[in-house]
Every structure is written in C-alpha cells, then in structure tokens.
C-alpha cells in the first residue's frame, strides 16, 4: 500500500511528523455524522486513518452536493491554518470514520513557536491544497464530457 508515504504525513520530514502526531488524538466518527459545517469555526483538523469523508456545499433547497471525497491518509481540513479560521465546505463521514484529530490552536501555537516546524506543516498543507487545486482545475475542464476521450473518439 502506498498510503504511508503519500498521505498528508508523508509530506512531512520524520522529525516534524513525529512532533505533529504528538498532538493527535484518535477519534471515531459514526457513519453519516456531520463533521463540520460551512462557515463554522475551523478549530480542529483530522488525518484519516480509515473510512472516508465527503466535502459538500450548502445549496438551499437541495441536498448538499458532494464536491470531493477524501480517504485514508488524507488531510481533512485546512481552513484552520488561515484566517479567519472558518470552514469553506461542510464535511460528512462516509461509513465509520477513524481519524487522528488535532487541536488547531495548539498546532498553530507550536508552529508560531518553532518556525522550522511551522514551515514544514504549512508546506505540507500547501502541498495538499495545491494537489486539490490541480484536481479541481482538471475537473473544471469537464474532460469526460463530449467531445474527447481516448482513441475511440475521432470522428468526421
């Protein structure tokens, strides 16, 4: 499995990884539970150990559309690192979710005290954001929509 190297923690040098995980507290969230809501205070974040989470957007009058799903090793939540520390999206557990939960204010404080640690954490979070931004842009292209798609598409 590739999880350990390529999850969020894989993006941190070992020393900083250990330091961060020291803040972790293992939690279990029951299937379908709302983890956070759009606009709520981003005071925590999670690294998923097993199960998954769906990020969604509140649209009045219809069920919140899911814009992305996260799975094992993924960082759940990055709004805690940037002011105003409010969630951009909502999140819901898909199936039973086990995760390491972090207290955002404590991590931020540690980052403030130790710039090297802070830089590493910020960099790892930024890498996650960059990946998601890239993925989002790719999806914006609606590549699978007509026209296009593999050798089977060419047409006169």
């Amino acid at each position: 499995m590739t999880t350990s190297q390529h999850g969020f923690l894989g993006g941190l040098p070992p020393a900083h990884r250990d330091r961060l995980t020291a803040f972790a507290q293992e939690v279990e969230i029951s299937a379908g539970a709302r983890i956070f809501e759009e606009g709520g205070a981003a005071d925590r974040f999670w690294i998923i150990r097993s199960g998954g989470a769906a990020l969604d957007v509140h649209v009045p009058g219809r069920p919140p559309p899911v814009v992305e799903t996260l799975g094992e090793g993924d960082l759940l939540g990055w709004s805690w690192l940037f002011e105003p520390y409010r969630w951009h999206l909502g999140a819901q557990a898909r199936g039973r979710l086990r995760a390491d939960e972090f207290d955002a204010s404590r991590v931020r404080a540690a980052c403030g005290q130790d710039p090297a640690f802070g830089l590493a954490v910020t960099g790892a979070v930024a890498a996650v954001i960059a990946r998601r931004l890239k993925a989002t842009r790719t999806r914006l292209l609606d590549l699978y929509g007509p026209p296009g798609g593999g050798a089977g598409g060419g047409d006169g």
Binding site: P146, P147, G148, G153, G154, D155, G156
Partner: peptide, 10 residues
Amino acid sequence: FDLDFSHLPG
C-alpha cells in the same frame, strides 16, 4: 496546412 487536417471532435 489545412486547418481541418488535425481535426479532433473538439
């Protein structure tokens, strides 16, 4: 040189 020469559905 024909614009259509490399035509793909898009």
